[in-house]
Computed example of a mutant assay.
Amino acid sequence: MPAMKNKTASKERVLMVHNFYQIGGGEHTVFENEKKLLRENGHYLVEYTRDNAELNESKIKKILLPFTAVFSFKTYREIKRIIRKEKIDIVHCHNTFPLISPSVYYAAWSCGVPAVQTIHNFRFLCPNGVFFSNGRICEDCLHKGLHCGIKKGCYRESRIQTIVVANMLAVHRLLGTYKKLRYIFLTDFNRKKFHKLLGSKIKHEFIKPNFEYITTPDVNKTNDGSFVFIGRLDKNKGIDFLMDNWDLQKELYIFGNGELEEYVRSQCEKNEKLHYMGFQPQEKIWEYLSKAAAMLFPTDLYEGFPMTIIEAFALGTPVICSDIGNGADIIKKEDAGTVFKPRNKESLMYAIKEAENNYKKFSANAKKAYDLHYTPDSNYEKLKSIYKAVKK
């Protein structure tokens, strides 16, 4: 018992920081997964979270947001108090916008503790965080300046709200905040985008993908010939493209909800091969995903590191992805599916046929990729080495 106690005591004491959005997503899942991972491996972990729902409860918070998004004295005081009280070794941040703010980094540095930021999106480079505007990929703010986003009102289609984000970014670029941070990028694609802001010789940058807790049955995998879409029912996720162009005599099961839900329902009523499943528990989704010929990922976005792709890999299900950004890079790297030109029906049909013809190879490669790179065990080894490096 004493030996176990010493082993646990030698591991980093981590403060995990996250600002929840009003609508959950992949970042929330990653935050919860990493908390569980660290605790399972004997780390002492403290959480510091805030929720954007707070803005609906207080008019004062909304009025002060243009200032507190830049620097929250509430966050600064609370983080310093936690670090000192809990003897924290590392502050690991996920999302800090808008309530937590970059003040969390300064609180850590003032206590002599390194701050590590996992990059889930492109918020430091683009006010809306996704490099997407007016129905297309847009990197104007990266190459021409933040005024481009303000002019277009990219954040929530509001110039005023975009000014709040752009002001926060501009102030902390001027202060050099972002160049002092340690970064965990989910992919090399993301890391290269940040070189415009940070330079190509960042001292402390690491690449660690997301992972997922998923237990797969040790049986021969079946393929019932169906296809699955999992995600938000928003236009930039490509669901409208699928609905408009699905004339195959193959079953397509659609999991998720969002602004296009009624449209998806109406299309499903017209086409007996389309099945709207709505929001379902993970186990139910995995049941359908495990039997599918492929998962469809027709996004218009670069994305961060889609959790649904990891889930498909874990179940040995190939992925058919639009040839753009991180999704396509992952599929090509692992040779675990096919890609198609975004919003091109002919290209999609060819990709589906190719995936069907090479199902066994893609399925085996997907499962192999998960086992090698996306399990909790493999991820912890990466995270452990990152923590060791940033403490030097």
Rank of each mutant, 00 (worst) to 15 (best):
R84H: 07
K360S: 13
F131D: 11
M295I: 13
V70A: 12
E311C: 11
V319W: 00
P217M: 07
F132A: 08
F255S: 05
I202F: 08
V104H: 06
Y178I: 06
H172T: 03
Y253W: 07
V17E: 11
R136Y: 07
H172A: 05
A108K: 10
L348H: 00
W109F: 14
V171E: 03
N95D: 09
I254H: 00
F279H: 08
N210M: 02
L181A: 06
T49L: 06
R159S: 11
L252M: 01
L186C: 09
N365T: 09
T187V: 02
L260A: 02
L198W: 03
Y350D: 12
L315P: 04
K360P: 00
F31G: 01
R159C: 06
K345Y: 05
D371G: 05
I83M: 10
C141W: 07
L181V: 05
H373P: 04
S226Y: 03
I23K: 14
Y76Q: 09
A355G: 02
T338K: 02
K221Q: 13
K270E: 14
I309L: 12
F227M: 01
F194T: 08
E356V: 13
L15I: 09
N223R: 10
E272I: 11
L372H: 11
T8V: 14
T308V: 15
F297P: 09
R84T: 08
L64T: 12
S101D: 12
L296H: 01
F305K: 04
I386C: 02
F340W: 01
M277F: 01
N52L: 11
L181S: 02
D224V: 08
H94I: 14
A314L: 03
L315C: 07
N190T: 15
L348K: 00
I88M: 13
D377P: 03
C138K: 02
K151L: 12
S58W: 12
V130Y: 03
G238S: 04
E261N: 09
I137Y: 06
Q282T: 11
K144L: 15
T216I: 15
H275Y: 06
F211V: 10
E205A: 07
Y288R: 15
N52I: 05
K237L: 05
R84V: 08
C126E: 12
V171C: 10
F297G: 10
E47R: 11
K345Q: 15
R13V: 02
L169C: 07
T222D: 08
I320W: 00
K368L: 15
H94C: 03
A312H: 00
P114G: 01
I202M: 14
I88K: 13
R123V: 04
